[in-house]
Simulated assay, not measured.
Amino acid sequence: MKQPLRKDLEPVSASFVVKELVEPHFDPNWHFHPHFQLFLVEEGTGTRFIGDSIKPFSPGDLVFLGPNLPHLWRSDQAYFNRQSTLTTKGIVAYFTEDFLGAAFFEKQEMAPLRQLLNHARQGLEWTGPTRERVATVLRSLATQPVGFGRVLNFLTLLNELCYATDYQYLTSVSYTNTVKPNETDRMQLVHDYVLEHFPDELSLDRVADLAGMTSPAFCRYFKTRANKTFSEFVSEVRIGHACKLLMRGKLNITQISFESGFRTLSNFNRQFKDITGQTPSAYVKTYRQL
Rank of each mutant, 00 (worst) to 15 (best):
Asp8Tyr: 08
Ser15Ala: 11
Ser15Gly: 04
Phe16Val: 01
Val17Ile: 12
Val17Trp: 11
Val18Thr: 14
Lys19Ser: 07
Glu20Leu: 02
His25Thr: 08
Asp27Val: 08
Pro28Arg: 09
Pro28Ile: 01
Asn29Val: 15
Asn29Glu: 11
Asn29Ala: 11
His33Gln: 10
Pro34Leu: 03
Pro34Lys: 05
His35Lys: 10
Val41Thr: 12
Val41Asn: 03
Glu42Gly: 03
Glu42Val: 00
Ile50Phe: 06
Ile50Trp: 05
Gly51Phe: 06
Gly51Asp: 08
Asp52Pro: 05
Asp52Cys: 06
Ser53Gly: 05
Pro59Cys: 07
Phe64Asp: 13
Leu65Tyr: 02
Pro67Gly: 03
Pro70Gly: 02
Pro70Leu: 02
His71Ile: 05
Arg74Cys: 04
Ser75Trp: 04
Gln83Ile: 08
Thr87Lys: 15
Lys89Gln: 09
Gly90Cys: 06
Ala93Tyr: 07
Tyr94Arg: 10
Tyr94Glu: 06
Thr96Ala: 12
Glu97His: 12
Glu97Lys: 13
Asp98Gly: 08
Leu100Met: 14
Ala103Met: 01
Phe104Ala: 14
Phe104Val: 11
Phe104Gly: 10
Glu106Met: 09
Glu106Arg: 13
Lys107Trp: 01
Lys107Ile: 11
Gln108Val: 15
Pro112Arg: 01
Leu113Gly: 10
Arg114Leu: 10
Gln115Tyr: 11
Leu116Lys: 08
Leu116Tyr: 09
Leu116Ile: 03
Leu116Asn: 05
Leu116Arg: 05
Asn118Leu: 13
His119Gly: 04
His119Tyr: 08
Gly123Ala: 03
Trp126Glu: 06
Thr127Arg: 14
Gly128Val: 04
Glu132Ala: 15
Val134Tyr: 08
Thr136Gln: 13
Arg139Asp: 02
Arg139Leu: 01
Pro145Gly: 05
Gly149Arg: 12
Thr156Pro: 01
Asn159Gly: 11
Cys162Arg: 01
Ala164Glu: 13
Gln168Ala: 06
Tyr169Arg: 09
Ser172Pro: 04
Thr176His: 13
Asn177Pro: 04
Asn177Trp: 06
Lys180Asp: 14
Glu183Ile: 07
Asp185Arg: 08
Val190Ala: 02
Asp192Phe: 05
Tyr193Trp: 15
Glu196Ser: 14
Glu196Phe: 12
Ser203Trp: 10
Ser203Leu: 07
Leu204Tyr: 09
Leu210Gly: 07
Ala211Glu: 10
Met213Ile: 00
Phe218Leu: 07
Phe218Arg: 06
Arg220Pro: 02
Thr224Pro: 03
Ala226Trp: 09
Asn227Ile: 02
Lys228His: 06
Phe230Cys: 02
Ser231Met: 05
Glu232Leu: 05
Glu232Phe: 05
Ser235Ile: 06
Cys243Gln: 15
Met247Ile: 04
Arg248Gln: 14
Gly249Tyr: 09
Leu251Lys: 14
Leu251Ser: 11
Asn252Lys: 05
Gln255Thr: 12
Ile256Val: 15
Ile256Asp: 05
Ile256Cys: 12
Glu259Phe: 13
Ser260Asn: 08
Gly261Pro: 02
Gly261Asn: 08
Gly261Met: 04
Thr264Leu: 07
Ser266Asp: 15
Arg270Thr: 13
Arg270Gly: 00
Phe272Pro: 00
Thr276Pro: 04
Gly277Thr: 06
Gly277Trp: 03
Gly277Glu: 09
Gln278Glu: 09
Gln278Tyr: 09
Gln278Gly: 00
Thr279His: 08
Thr279Trp: 04
Pro280Asn: 00
Lys285Ala: 11
Gln289Leu: 08
Leu290Tyr: 13
